[in-house]
Computed example of a mutant assay.
Amino acid sequence: MLDRYRDKRDPSRTPEPFGERRQGDDDQFVIQEHHARSLHWDLRLERDGVLASWAVPKGLPPDPKVNHLAVRTEDHPMEYLTFEGEIPQGEYGGGSMTVWDRGTYTCEKWSEREVKIVLNGSRAQGRFVLFQTHGKNWMIHRMDPPARDPMPALEPMLAVKRAKAPRRPGDYAFEFAWGGRRTLATIDGGRTEVKLLRPLAESFGSRSAVLDGELVTLGGAEVYICYDLLYYDGHLLTGLPFSSRRETLQSLEISGARWQTAPSWPGEFGAVRQAARDQGLPGVIGKRLNSPYEPGESQSWLLFSA
């Protein structure tokens, strides 16, 4: 049952295990995050002494309304339940592999064309069915209710112009107005439609997010300046105060050559406005710390010219 696995690999060139068939209780599973030629997740289920395996490009579906592709791959040895490592480039499956989750599962049905399971892991939980569609292509469907808030379709929150400084600057966080192209970026399954952010999206792995920011030209290069987080890892954040959304955004440590988290200074209106003038930026935005995210114009975000 492991012949196809061995035929694709050279034990002298890959750190992957080469164990023999080992009968167990048919109740263990592992999901590995695999940064190979394209990011995907490998679902492996213990069955008859090996790990029956599927490559799932977008990960487990969070909602019964959406099925995800699952490509049946060769059976893997049981030692793969704990395997993590770097498969050398040029080898089959070259790239880094980490354990995303592991645990036990209950099998409700297993046939050549359909597998019904209940996963009981720390991150993956619920009832799923895998069903064959054509050849090695299968689909995976979640059978129980959604495990998270649905991904939102949102319009951006817009600032209202003001001439005078706010009476209580301590109620606001102040940021530069960048004058760029406003862009809400959805990241899901390691992918995004914003071309510049595709490497960032892959680094998110299975975490989903909706970022709010601007595409700005700095030093001759286009950079995404991110200043708000509307959705993260299954939770809609728009009802939370800006200060809480900002805290979660900062924890993501979005920082690189082509993307940055916008600096934000609570209460520092005068200093931030002067810095905007010095740098030739169009202005300053004051964001009320206790404000939710309100699509369209909002009195909670105030725009001041530099």
Rank of each mutant, 00 (worst) to 15 (best):
T248N: 00
G19N: 04
S111L: 02
T217R: 15
P263R: 14
E91P: 00
E155D: 13
L69Q: 13
V194A: 13
R288T: 00
G205E: 03
A276W: 07
S12A: 15
R6S: 07
D149H: 12
Q274E: 15
Y231F: 15
Y232P: 02
E79H: 07
V216C: 01
A209C: 06
Y232E: 03
S208R: 15
A36T: 09
V50S: 09
S255T: 12
M139S: 13
Y172M: 01
L69R: 14
I117R: 10
N137R: 14
Y227K: 08
V194H: 05
R47F: 13
G286H: 09
H35Y: 14
F269N: 00
V56M: 12
Y293E: 01
G205F: 05
L303G: 00
L154R: 01
F128T: 04
L119G: 09
N290Y: 03
L302K: 06
R258M: 08
H34N: 08
M1H: 09
A177Y: 00
Q250D: 13
R246L: 11
S300I: 01
T186Y: 07
M97D: 01
L45C: 06
W138C: 11
A70W: 00
R142D: 10
D144H: 09
D25C: 09
M1T: 02
W110K: 12
G267S: 08
T183P: 05
E79F: 06
M1A: 13
Q89E: 14
E193M: 09
K136Y: 03
G121Q: 04
R123N: 06
E268D: 14
T104M: 04
G283V: 04
H34R: 01
S208V: 05
D212T: 05
A177S: 10
E294M: 10
K195S: 12
W41C: 01
H40R: 09
V272F: 07
K65H: 11
F176Y: 14
D25Q: 15
G213D: 06
D233E: 10
